[in-house]
Design a protein around this nucleic acid. Structure first.
Length: 239
DNA sequence: ACATTAAAAAGCA
DNA sequence: TGCTTTTTAATGT
């Protein structure tokens, strides 16, 4: 479900208006939300966003922070919430071209949403007021946003299905088969750390490790590190 | 069936 | 080598 091998091609260093930290206008042209607009419009929008860089592990979005739309240009970030016990439930990983934080902009008070950089990450930040103005000014944006948000909701549904399946074994099996379908190959690479996959599947790294071993013993998969090969697709799907 | 805790083993910079 | 990630083992819910 998550791949991470895109690299933005070197941007032409023309006359970049140094608004903030003097970065290039990557985000606006890169992101599906904006890249269908005319160049002139994109440039206007670009003046409204601030480009920021985050090191691995830095918080980008917190519940008490200012409402803002965050667009990922490079790297990726994880979006998660904290359970009562303080355990982290990973919701999704946002890749270049993706965005996060729009729900707050719509007025939804999302009380416990965090976003954190998984790698050194370039993002563009759009403030609430500016974004609302944009939506009014470019009605096409609203439609596009609606479309993209619908996609996101589909992903969230899948995530909820994971947690509805009672056994970790089943969740892991489903995750692997989904990933296999996505890559159209029997050999695949887990796109995140085991610790994070565990959080994503709603379990602990320890249990995840045991389940991997169990699937290997059943000859359903083989694994070296995060490199997994599916040996028995049918057997895996039966779970 | 899992979580938790602790500790060893394996990776990585 | 020193820190982080992953695995193993023992014990608890």
């Amino acid at each position: 479900m998550v791949r991470s091998e895109k690299r933005p091609k070197s941007p032409d260093e023309a006359a970049a208006k140094a608004t903030d930290s003097a970065q290039q206008h990557l985000c606006v042209t890169l992101v599906p939300l904006f890249n269908h607009l005319e160049t002139a419009d994109q440039q206007k929008i670009n003046q409204l966003v601030s480009h920021r860089h985050f090191a691995k592990g830095e918080q980008i979005l917190t519940p008490d922070g200012e409402p803002q739309l965050v667009i990922v240009a490079r790297g990726n970030l994880k979006v998660y919430q904290l359970s009562a016990a303080g355990r982290e439930q990973l919701l999704r990983v946002v890749e270049p071209g993706g965005y996060e934080g729009e729900s707050q902009l719509f007025g939804a008070k999302n009380a416990d949403l965090f976003a954190e950089a998984l790698q050194p990450t370039e993002v563009c930040v759009l403030k609430q007021a500016d974004f609302q103005e944009l939506l009014l000014r470019y009605p096409q944006l609203s439609l596009k946003l609606l479309e993209l948000t619908a996609d996101k909701m589909t992903a969230v549904e899948q995530q909820t299905q994971f947690l509805l399946m009672e056994k970790v074994e089943e969740r892991l099996a489903k995750y692997l088969t989904d990933l296999q379908v996505a890559t159209t190959s029997s050999s695949l690479t887990i796109p995140m750390k085991m610790k994070e996959l565990a959080a994503y599947l709603g379990t602990t790294p320890e249990t995840l490790s045991r389940k991997f071993k169990l699937l290997e013993e059943k000859q359903l998969i083989s694994r070296k590190g995060s490199r997994v090969t599916v040996l028995d697709t049918e057997g895996l799907e039966e779970l």
